[in-house]
Design a protein around this nucleic acid. Sequence first.
DNA 1: GCAAAAGTGTTATCATTACACCCATGG
DNA 2: CCATGGGTGTAATGATAACACTTTTGC
Lengths: 253, 253
Amino acid sequence: MKPNYGYKYPRPAVTTDCVIFGFDLKESVLKILLIERGIEPFSGKMALPGGFIQIKTETDADGFVVSEKNETLYECAKRELCEETGLKINYMAELGTFSTCGRDPRGVVITDAYYALVNPSDVKGGDDALTAQWVNFHEVLEVIGHMPKGFRFLAFDHDEIVARAYRSLQEQICFEPIAFELLPEKFSMTAVQRVYEEVLGRQFDRRNFARKVLDSGVLDQLPHTGRNVYYSLNRERYEEMRSSGKRLKLIFV
Amino acid sequence: MKPNYGYKYPRPAVTTDCVIFGFDLKESVLKILLIERGIEPFSGKMALPGGFIQIKTETDADGFVVSEKNETLYECAKRELCEETGLKINYMAELGTFSTCGRDPRGVVITDAYYALVNPSDVKGGDDALTAQWVNFHEVLEVIGHMPKGFRFLAFDHDEIVARAYRSLQEQICFEPIAFELLPEKFSMTAVQRVYEEVLGRQFDRRNFARKVLDSGVLDQLPHTGRNVYYSLNRERYEEMRSSGKRLKLIFV
DNA sequence: GCAAAAGTGTTATCATTACACCCATGG
DNA sequence: CCATGGGTGTAATGATAACACTTTTGC
């Protein structure tokens, strides 16, 4: 048994929430996955998938806690995401914590927020999850932007989490090869460009765009199967590059 | 009284820890502030300043919790930092959470880590804090890098937090005008360059460096008092720039 | 058959780097 | 007086952005 140093402070409840982005190739539209809450608080409202961190405690005969084991917050986010959506995650990154007092009417509940990227194939599959649904991301942003002061579209402070996730996605896509995590194994250069244009809200010149992306060196060109050219992400080359301290130059100023 | 939705899950203890960077202008050396722990666990070891999030609870006559109020994790980090060091913080940013099981021998303790930048004037003042001391940052990194596998220099998982803080500092200094937060109100261009060179571990050409920094537009040149030129950070111009979606181009590839 | 998408290079402009000498200050 | 730090500009190189026409495919 471990020594008991005794922590008598009140503890907050701790959750993770995840903003899941998917890219609909047919419509060239960025989507996020929301679930409809079935229970209070915010029953009936849309919310991000998430839930409480799991801690397994062992107690002795007198009911005193002998040992505790916890999953990491990252594992928690991944677990909740799988449990609630069944999706296969290509990429997940931490956004940060949200802990303003009153964000959860049930008491002190701190959340560690993440954002995740999934494949378009998964996007379709996710649809049959009970209350989970893919919604057009920019429409969600619009709605959030037009809520009257003091009102929110999503449950809890999820409006803010979504906004932060989008900012983070926009920043990361400029330096990290995360756009490819929104695409299938093989993809055309046009598909890549669609992702960038949708995420950054700007148009690019096709030739200049292709040059920059290819110059970054993280893509393999696949042997022509049809007339069109397809690519796949070379993760090894990316890892080399990143461990050598180089950032990708996918910056589009 | 608020409705009781009932959270029966075991809760983790939650702390914040902060990596405080300071820049010693005379020696041109980056330093961090460490405190020597006076109590178990890790008594006698060096650690990052930090502590538990404060939650105020009100209970009714029967001892049931009626309401809880908490500070945000950001406020917590700031409070702990002030309490333990008395320093005035110029800048503080979240690094992320650390939650691997077993990181604290006392049980499940999750930490939200921050890093902070303070002025050189504060650096001197901090010295008289009881057990807090400024140590050469690169020396700390050296020691951490040479610890045999399974051993750590700092208490808890603070070795890793420090490493993450440094990575974050290196990345941020390329795009955000945070170098100036390590300097006094008025500073010479050389001082700025010293900060960049110390943080990024590389030398720059004086003229090219000055051009880039000045082109960013966030510095005001102060009227010559002596023969040398001094500058100060124009926070307004920086905020304009940042809200207009532009990132600083302080990238030194 | 027509509209929309994909393939393909070159040039002008802009940004970045490399580089040297003189003067002032302080030890 | 010598060493160090600070002030100042230009030219070559490399990166980026603007640009049009032809072919293919799907409706």
